[in-house]
Amino acid sequence: MPPWFKKKQQRGFGSGDAGYARLVDNSAVDLSHGVILYLEDITVSFDGFKALDRLTLSIDDGELRCIIGPNGAGKTTMMDCITGKTRPDSGSAYFGQAMDLTRMTEPEIAAMGIGRKFQKPTVFERHSVFENLELALKRDKRVRYSLVAQVDDEVRDRVSDTLQRIRLEGEAERMAGLLSHGQKQWLEIGMLLMQEPRLLLLDEPVAGMTDDETERTAELFQSLAGQHSLVVVEHDMAFVASIASIVTVLHEGRVLAEGTLDKVQNEPQVIEVYLGR
């Protein structure tokens, strides 16, 4: 049997395709052991190059975790695996105790309560800021509901709350494409908030922000930790230092070190990877 057929079967034709976009009460995620995300032995290879090599990682509920690592360490690939964009060649990824992420599609995973911010800010440039947030709102996302959905007062309230939080109050009717880079980053974070996810994956959230904006982002993230779990990939060490309690260092698709920032910064392997001896 040619290899691609096997691939397809793994994806699981119609593995609960029908119900994924239904409004899910994501408190249903089984957090009985206090762990919200558990990756075990994940391996992904592209044409022989191993982007992830038996990666094992676990995130506690309510934790704010920073992931650092040099380019090509596999940070983005890891996020792709968690959100269903890339299927791991082997290994398992669990959301809570019972949800196998490797068997779910991207929309299913998103509906279960994992939100993701891309490295490059991705908003709907030809929609207004308001519409961007409205589309992100946690609602039933199946076609038949979208066909009859209306913008009611509840939607307006929720959107204006979030607008305030991301400091875009005056921009509601503006085209998202006209925002500055930093504003787009904030809008995307705002869209994540509208989704009310349990777990937020943020890929370089402060890239292109001014110092002031970065500081406010740090405040926002800290206020989110607790009710939400956050995984932040970032190169800006000052930012990492300002928010994280625990830092994970990835290198060549594996966890190189884990612990407080001070601790990992003093590990010899980490220094070697970053400075090259």
């Binding site: 994924y20 991705t122 979208s146 009859v148 869209m191």
Partner: peptide, 30 residues
């Protein structure tokens, strides 16, 4: 259709399909 939320999702798919997926919409049905 295009002025409903369905239409907004459709144009969103046109402009940034993966963003739409990570918001929990399945572009297939739209």
């Amino acid at each position: 259709l295009v002025t409903s939320k369905f239409g907004r999702v459709l144009t969103a798919i046109r402009d940034a399909e993966s963003r739409v997926m990570f918001l929990g919409y399945n572009p297939l049905w739209y």
